[in-house]
Design a protein around this nucleic acid. Structure first.
Lengths: 234, 234
DNA sequence: CGACCGTTTGAGATCCTTCAATACCAGTGG
DNA sequence: CCACTGGTATTGAAGGATCTCAAACGGTCG
């Protein structure tokens, strides 16, 4: 809980970063030239909605939460970027969401000005960034379907499968975020999240080793739920 | 209701299309060269989720609805693109949502292969498309907040202001879509949409000339509602 | 006029929330 | 070692916003 914001200028091992995939040797060296490492302890803020966006980031290690707030404090989390995710890419002005560290995180930072020059000078980079952003858009639209039309159980099932995908672990997932984070991501309250998990446990669809460690015992059932195949089990 | 799908190869007056804004004279002529006009009557399908994406479109006239379905028929509308909107831009494979005409529509179509060549050959185009997609992403994230955390009244108020913006009409909006469309856009049922509109009318916040014609009588109140400023009026 | 389709309105049910209490877990200090 | 504390998670009971089901209304078209 003790805040400790470290921003080093040490060059990350940038060659295998997401931003560099598919780039030529020389282009990669340019990316390395402008990047710097940046760390945040769990709970710390990376940037806030409305602040000037002074650059882009790539998550190297750990998990962030990105969220938007309503004036009275209602919160909607729009994503939990993990290692390999680019963020803060497009905004030509202010950040459109806030970013906090869920766990201790390491990031790679690209200052706005040099990043823009890079995009102009490296052929194909704009197109790659376009593709990345288009992927995020697709993901956001899936989330629209989830928030607008799925039930609590379907939402939670979708979320567990998302974690499973992210962690490339078909049966065992780590849940670094709190129930409150999960609720604000799925448009539910913490109580509903908790109750839904308990119900899935009773049904032997999942196992709850601890609050942050979940076993996917019946992946088929979870996938049916997440897909919305109205298979209402008694 | 009688289906009538016309696809002409007549060149649209493409010079002032969204895709061309900011492009040089020669580049514009290239865009013109690959584009074709395309029309759909109200209710007709432009493409369906899962189909191969054979090109991109720009709405020239009219309104579309883009939506995703769950297996049991639950529908989430992800957007109502109107004139000036580009769509089907990014997908390297299948469409990720279905598109239908809400009103009679005119579109400009860019076939995939030539469009891709264009993106590679026109400097700055990829970057522009990236910016367009980033804008859509931002919009989708606002919609996440709406679906996940706003009340029915806040959702409807946001929707009316969106229409007002789209139509650049501060007090009078045309509602071309049905209550069912609105409900599936806001994550509500048609009954709740209708009741909410009736309540806003009783409160003299809006006027309901007819089902598809709404007067914004108290824009401040609508904006306060849409922003989520928990101003619960008696 | 009468049928049709979308909208509005009403009454009751439901899912999820709210409020409140209890349980759990880790860290701290006695 | 164990009680205490603070924070998070779980569980319970009651309430409410929205949904479901059903009927009435209203505009359009033949």
């Amino acid at each position: 809980m003790h805040a400790q914001a470290i921003t080093s200028t040490a060059k990350p091992e940038v060659a295998h970063l997401t931003l560099c995939r598919g780039l030529e040797r020389q282009a990669v060296s340019h990316v390395v030239a402008i990047s710097s490492l940046c760390k945040r302890a769990a709970g710390e803020t990376l940037f806030s909605e409305g602040e000037a966006a002074d650059g882009a980031f790539e998550v190297v290690k750990g998990t962030l939460r990105l969220y938007k707030l309503l004036p009275d404090g209602r919160r909607q989390i729009v994503g939990f970027p993990a290692a390999g995710t680019l963020l803060g890419l497009a905004p030509e002005g202010a950040h459109v969401y806030s970013a906090e560290a869920v766990t201790d995180v390491t990031l790679c930072r690209y200052p706005r000005a040099s990043f823009n020059r890079l995009v102009d000078s490296v052929p194909g980079l704009a197109r790659r960034l376009w593709a990345v952003t288009a992927d995020e858009l697709r993901f956001a639209q899936d989330q629209l379907l989830l928030l607008g039309r799925k039930t609590a159980a379907e939402k939670v099932a979708s979320f567990l499968l998302l974690l499973s995908d992210q962690q490339q672990s078909p049966t065992e997932v780590e849940v670094p975020m709190t129930r409150s984070d999960i609720g604000d991501y799925l448009g539910l309250t913490i109580e509903t999240v908790s109750r839904t998990l308990t119900k899935l446990k009773r049904d032997k669809t999942i196992g709850l080793t601890s609050a942050c460690r979940i076993t996917l015992r019946d992946r088929d059932q979870l996938e049916a739920l997440a897909a919305g195949e109205a298979a209402t089990e008694s």
